[in-house]
Every structure is written in structure tokens, then in C-alpha cells.
Design a protein around this nucleic acid. Structure first.
Length: 502
RNA sequence: GAGCCUGUAGCUCAGCUGGUAGAGCAGCGGACUUUUAAUCCGUUGGCCGAGAGUUCGAUUCUCUCCAGGCUCACCA
């Protein structure tokens, strides 16, 4: 898209003309730097310290109120807005002429003394200013006012498609969007701080993998030219992290971008972030304690307390969280105890509960369907759902006391699964059998069945200590903690179909 | 993949039962040296998402396509 000047709409044409006028005044519209001394919010919060002192701030021009030979405006930097007052007498004829050529959205730097106007607004009385970047395209800046401390925006830039496609404009114009991504960064930092504080090692493992594994999902494929081989973008990093436990680390973790070639909706983006951690010499009970403690710390770091609001539900992260086995949770909601039930018995119960199933589903899958239909949405407060059917968990260790189940748990919060953890399977013979079961599933057409990974089995044969592992969907956690309804609202650049340029 | 909804000026939106478009803000010109959604006067700007059909005539009705949203399904 290389617009010709005649193709430009009038607003953009006018801006280019203004740019030419600015240049004709001998002003560089794109200088190299600016000596900023303060942020808007510092001045506002410590007005008494700054009163009548000289400050320099820089940011975008977000509101303009021209009044003949004086102009009030707001400059917005990363911290917030501050009013500036530009007077003909103070900046001179040439200065005021240049100021008149500025538009909303232009990036400027201003220097002047801090004062309060007669209406009480903290204002910089400008003695000098510099254009730092001339905008050629109008930003969708909406008018706003502050009423009783609340920001009221009129006709905000709200078109979701444009906001996702032009995130730069969304961020530039909607400070609350900037805030969401600052929180995202804080959440990740807090989690990393917790894990590092426990002594676990942050590692990096391959994204391009010759075999994909560690989860049930369809992968993206790619090709390496020199090696002339097919490669997959990872769907998980689990098997690599366990190899590192074999190697002797006591705890390893990674914030991993994973890729799954599946449907997209408000909880799924083809690429997403998962934090996985593996800890040697512990089991899933240890990991439940860790999750409570880690999530609790993150919520406290973010809010100062243990409670947050998500989509009008108040959620309380105060540990300890209830622990309920998957089968208990189903019994509680439906009255049916499914433990030890045969496949025909389960199908009969599913029918009574009006839960759909098909002939390819085994015992584990039908139990999972019933759970998904009858229980999941009711798990609003943080809770651990434990001990899943073995068929669904080919990488988890069999339950020490309950045949047919594995030692696994999923934390549920706000009706959504927020992670997945097991006591890891470290018996190489059992692991091989589980892979072979998966192979059978693949043969009957399960595109998400896991692949047999000989190298991983070799690693287990060298011996992996008892280990517990956890995966946390970071995007969903951020949605929860920032009260955003869609994963696209917590991804800076969500995946979109290509835009048609005119 | 299915259902529902949306796509009209830079932004936010009107446009009823078909007669080729309107508002507010932004922009442009003018007045205004403490305003704050500044105000007042004037004014530019639209292949009405794309294509086809019905019709004398389509932003409006029908179909196809494109893009997006929501819900469901799929999915850990």
C-alpha cells in the first residue's frame, strides 16, 4: 500500500501540506531526540513539589482547544495526560505559527513552568516546544472528559477488527488497553520471580521439533531446506523439559510459545503462551500447593489482595483451594458415581444426562464429556479437579491407589481450566505402552493422538526421578486477572485473516 | 464446521414499507490570549465491504463472495 498523494483523502492531504509548511519554516518535523525531564503523572501527583518549576514532557497531542492567540491542549505520555497552555506572548510569532500547524496525534515535547489554571487544572505554561514527529494519518482520537475522577470517552475507537489489526492505533488511543498489556507483563514477571525464587532453572527448548509431543493437538508443519526435512512447530515442550530432569536438574521451567493448528475462538489462538515447570522428587500434591501459592502471589502482586473480579464474579484465590476428584465432582453435580463403570454403563448414563457421545469414544473420553457438559462451567471459585482416567493422560503416572486413574489435576477458575499437572510417568516400559495405545488411536483416525518418541523413551530408560509437572495457559490466566472476555484482548497481535488493502 | 449479527465520511453512528445519503466529533476557513466534550459562524468530504440478480430505479429486497463479532460444536 503505497498511497499516491492524489489518492489520499483530504485529511491526509492536508497533513502533508502542513508538513511542507513546517519544513518551509525551517523546522525539522522528525528530529532525533528530546530531553524529557518528567512524566505527566509525576507532576500531577507531586504538584506541590513542581509548582512554578520548569519541566519538560513529551508525548502525543490528544486534545486541542484553540482560542485565538492562546491554546490549551493535552499532551499524553506513557503515564497519562497533562494540560499545556501555549500563549502567543510566550512562544513568539514564529512559535505560535508552528503550533498552529500541529494536529491531534502529533508527538511533541514541551518545556515550561507548572501552574494551576483558574479552574484548578495542573498545567504547563509552555515557554518552548518542539515538534518531535508529524503524523500524516489521523489517529482515531475521541473526545473525553473527566467527571468525578472517572474518564468519560465519547465515541471511543471501538471497532474490534480495526483495534486488533491496528493495535498500534488501539494502544495509542486507548490507555486502558495499554494497561492490560502492562498487567500481562507484570503477571509473567511475578510468575517468573516466584519460580526463580524457588530455585528452578529457566530454560529454552526447541520450537522446531522433528516430532511433536507433550499434548494432544494437531501441529503446524514446516520444512527445513538444508536438512531437507519436515519439522513441526511445537504443541508443547513437556517432553524436552522432562529430558532435562533426566539430565539432573531439580526443577526447570519455560515460558513457551506453543502452536496448535486448530479452531480459533475467544479462548484459542493458533499461537499461545504456556508456562511449564517440572520438579524432581515431588508428586502432584506438592504441585497443588505450588499452584495455590504461586497464583496467590501473582494476584497479590497485581492487586494487593487475594480477590479479583472476572466478568461479574468475585474470585477468591486465598489458599488452600478445595481439592475434588473428577469423579467426585461429577457425582456431586449429577448423582452418578462413575468409578469402575463399564463402557455400556457409561453410555447409558450419558444418555440419561443428555450428553452426546459417539462410537469412537472410550471410557475416559465419555467421562470427560460428562464432566465438560455438567461440571466444568460451575467451577467458578478456584478448585483442583484431580485423578483423571488413564486413557486421557498418556504422560501421567498411574494413581497409587485408584486403578484406571492417573495422578493428575487441573486448576479450574471462573469455569475454565487454567492449567494441567501430573505426577509424571517415569516408568519407561509403561510409557512405551501408553505411546502404543496412542498409536492405535492414530490408526483409527484420531488426528490428535500423541506420537511415539523413541528419543524420549531412551531418556526415560536412563532414569528420571519421581517428578511432578505443570502447564499453565498464560493467556487465559491473563484474561482472568485483567477481566478480559477474549484471548484476543490479551494478545498484542492476535491472528487475523489478511487485510484487503484498497 | 453450524446458527445469529455487523460492514454507510478519518472516528462513533442514523438512514422507516426500494426514489443513487445524513448527524455528532475530527478536518478546512473565520472570530476569540485561562479553556477543558471550549464556544460561535461558515464549509469540504462517501464506488453505502465486493460481485451478480430482481426492478424504470437498490445503501435499502434476493443470492454469492470477502472481512469481523457473538453463540454453539471441535479443542485440554
Amino acid at each position: 500500500m503505497e498511497p499516491q498523494l492524489d489518492d489520499l483523502n483530504s485529511v491526509m492531504r492536508v497533513r502533508r501540506e502542513k508538513l511542507e509548511k513546517i519544513q518551509a519554516l525551517g523546522v525539522n518535523a522528525y528530529p532525533h531526540d528530546f530531553n524529557r525531564t518528567h512524566f505527566a503523572v509525576d507532576i500531577a501527583q507531586h504538584f506541590d513539589n513542581y509548582f512554578e518549576k520548569e519541566v519538560s514532557v513529551a508525548g502525543r497531542l490528544m486534545a486541542l482547544r484553540k482560542q485565538g492567540k492562546a491554546t490549551f491542549a493535552h499532551v499524553e505520555d506513557s503515564s497519562g495526560r497533562i494540560q499545556i497552555y501555549v500563549k502567543f506572548d510566550a512562544v513568539g510569532e514564529k512559535g505560535y505559527e508552528l503550533f498552529g500547524l500541529l494536529d491531534l496525534g502529533d508527538i511533541i515535547g514541551v518545556t515550561g513552568k507548572v501552574l494551576k489554571t483558574r479552574t484548578g487544572e495542573i498545567t504547563i505554561q509552555v515557554t518552548a516546544f518542539a515538534l518531535l514527529s508529524k503524523t500524516l494519518r489521523p489517529l482515531p482520537i475521541a473526545k473525553e472528559k473527566v467527571e468525578e475522577g472517572e474518564r468519560v470517552v465519547y465515541d471511543a475507537f471501538a471497532d474490534k477488527e480495526m483495534r486488533y489489526r491496528q493495535r498500534y492505533a488501539d494502544l495509542a488511543v486507548n490507555p486502558e488497553v495499554r494497561e492490560v498489556f502492562k498487567k500481562r507483563s507484570r503477571i509473567i514477571a511475578s510468575m517468573r520471580e516466584y519460580l526463580t525464587g524457588q530455585g528452578y532453572l529457566e530454560v529454552e527448548t526447541p520450537i522446531l521439533q522433528p516430532l511433536y509431543g507433550g499434548a494432544s493437538a494437531r501441529p503446524f508443519t514446516t520444512h527445513h531446506n538444508t536438512l531437507n526435512m519436515k519439522l513441526y512447530l511445537r504443541i508443547a515442550n513437556e517432553l524436552y523439559l522432562k529430558r532435562l530432569i533426566v539430565g539432573g536438574y531439580d526443577g526447570v521451567f519455560e515460558f513457551a510459545k506453543d502452536f496448535r493448528n486448530e479452531g480459533m475462538d475467544r479462548f484459542h489462538n493458533p499461537e499461545f503462551t504456556m508456562m511449564e515447570v517440572y520438579i524432581a522428587y515431588h508428586d502432584y500434591h506438592f504441585m497443588m500447593n505450588l499452584v495455590e501459592e504461586m497464583f496467590g502471589k501473582i494476584v497479590q502482586d497485581l492487586t494487593g489482595g487475594y480477590k479479583i473480579t472476572y466478568q461479574n464474579h468475585e474470585l477468591d484465590f486465598t489458599p488452600p483451594w478445595p481439592r475434588l476428584s473428577l469423579l467426585e465432582s461429577i457425582e456431586k453435580e449429577t448423582g452418578y458415581n462413575l468409578y469402575g463403570k463399564s463402557l455400556p454403563e457409561l453410555k447409558e448414563i450419558a444418555e440419561k444426562l443428555h450428553v452426546a457421545y459417539d462410537h469412537t469414544m472410550g471410557v475416559g473420553k465419555i467421562i470427560d464429556e460428562i464432566f465438560g457438559a455438567k461440571v466444568e462451567a460451575k467451577l467458578i471459585q478456584p478448585v483442583f479437579i484431580t485423578d483423571h482416567p488413564v486413557e486421557l493422560s498418556p504422560l501421567a503416572k498411574k494413581h497409587r491407589a485408584k486403578p484406571g486413574l492417573v495422578e493428575r489435576f487441573e486448576p479450574f477458575i471462573g469455569g475454565k481450566e487454567m492449567g494441567n499437572a501430573f505426577t509424571e510417568l517415569n516408568d519407561p516400559i509403561d510409557q512405551r505402552e501408553r505411546f502404543l495405545e496412542q498409536k492405535k488411536l492414530a490408526e483409527i483416525g484420531d488426528e490428535e493422538a500423541q506420537q511415539l518418541d523413541e528419543d524420549f523413551l531412551r531418556a526415560l530408560e536412563y532414569g528420571m526421578p519421581p517428578t511432578t509437572g505443570l502447564g499453565v495457559g498464560i493467556d487465559r490466566l491473563v484474561m482472568l486477572l485483567t477481566d478480559q472476555p477474549s484471548i484476543r484482548d490479551v494478545l498484542l497481535f492476535p491472528q487475523m485473516r489478511p487485510e484487503q488493502y484498497k
